[in-house]
Design a binder for these strands. Structure first.
Lengths: 236, 236
DNA sequence: ATCTGTGAAAAGATTCACAGCC
DNA sequence: GGCTGTGAATCTTTTCACAGAT
């Protein structure tokens, strides 16, 4: 690491020592741990975790060893404790308030989604410019006009914004979001945003994912022949 | 690469020589090239491409050199030709038919989205089990019952499915999709799917992305101090 | 002068393999 | 027996740097 402050291309904005790719896996661990907790399993070995997620046991151990020693040799990891530790790493051990910006079809779907709280997020505001949507309620929140965003960020302590506006206005709206004091943007618009280094962006471009998928099906064995019994395996 | 056929953990299902991480960047290149094409720019240098997407020029050249020589020294890459080549790599130079499975809020949003065609995808079917949704139309397609999926896959040559069902039934529904002959699944359900090796899966878990974002805002400089003017930079 | 393509070097991520604990 | 944590080895990805094309 040589470029701690600007977040330029070479070093994709790594502040702490944990790489983005590791953080993603940590998320998957947490998801699976929550599943285990519901089933009442209180302890889990790196082997089981890896198998469920399509990773090697060594990978799991390396990832988890990033922050101290959590496992007990001969036993494994304590499901509840490990989950809590992961949450504290993500900062989801306390609830974060979130704004949805752009209330088109996607924005509405996100507003109606009822799984946020369980994951530590609460949608406390929805914002759009279209007069036809302003005032309407989706899920539990009513749509406000964009110029109310800065005030809402302050009064509700909004940390994150979900950007679901058309590509053409995404950069401009992202600017407004940053100026309002939001710390991170989940970007559904198919453009690369330019934001101050203090603001984090995580892109979610459906077209990119579909192209990824299309590429995979394109390069795989074109057609499954009957009798060529394929083994099941967890997704990447 | 040592494990060409099973797609086990260690080798994340690499059939061709291009790594998933490279493929993702190729998608971003295409997106930006389409933008340039609209603006009428006919040629682009690795430097510009990299700058726009937050990558080094060398990275861009390496990625593009994966498939023959496309650039002209002293000039750059031809926007249109490069875009076409990328599309042919993704298999989006011809239109692929897609099914949406699970017509909740998210599924509906996806059905109404009007950007598919431009990217080479056409949603030709929607499937759900809930009697209340069957027969209803969203966007241009009417919802059918799940047991019609296999027939639809055959008659419409459906290659890909978008899975947008609740986590609890995702694995089971994924099985139906695979048995129907679909080659790839874009998985919005927050579970790791187990599918035959012949079927590709690309996961899109919103909670995972939000946790990623939350982690970044958690570990960044907690509050931007005025006067500490942050430079703008493209998102990762 | 500008820009690509590409070996070689550097950096990063994953797997191996085993000492030590339960 | 089973399991973790971790250095060392291996494999992958990125960056450097420059020859050669326009």
């Amino acid at each position: 690491m040589k470029d701690e402050h600007t977040g330029r291309p070479g070093s994709p904005t790594r502040r702490s020592g944990i790489s983005p790719i590791t953080v993603r896996r940590l998320s998957l661990y947490l998801r699976y741990l929550e599943e285990l907790a519901e089933k009442g399993q209180s302890t889990v070995a790196s082997r089981q975790l890896g198998q469920a997620l399509g990773l090697t046991a060594a990978q799991v151990r390396k990832d988890l060893a990033y922050f101290g020693q959590f496992g007990r040799p001969g036993v494994g990891y304590h499901v509840g404790k490990l989950a809590n530790h992961l949450r504290s790493i993500f900062g989801t051990d306390r609830i974060s308030n979130v704004a949805v910006v752009g209330v088109g079809d996607l924005g509405r779907a996100l507003l109606r989604y009822r799984g946020w709280l369980k994951k530590g997020f609460r949608v406390v505001g929805a914002f759009d410019t279209a007069p036809s949507t302003i005032g309407k309620k989706f899920g539990k929140v009513a749509v406000q006009s964009m110029d109310q965003l800065p005030a809402a960020v302050k009064t509700h302590q909004i940390r994150l914004a979900i950007l679901a506006v058309p590509a053409g206005v995404a950069q401009e709206v992202a600017g407004q979001i940053c100026r309002a004091g939001v710390q991170g943007i989940l970007n559904f618009a198919p453009v690369t945003l330019n934001v101050p280094a203090a603001v984090a962006v995580v892109p979610v471009d459906l077209a990119v994912q579909l192209e990824q998928l299309s590429y995979l099906t394109n390069t795989r064995a074109p057609r499954r022949r009957p009798g060529n019994r394929a083994k099941r395996r967890p997704q990447p």
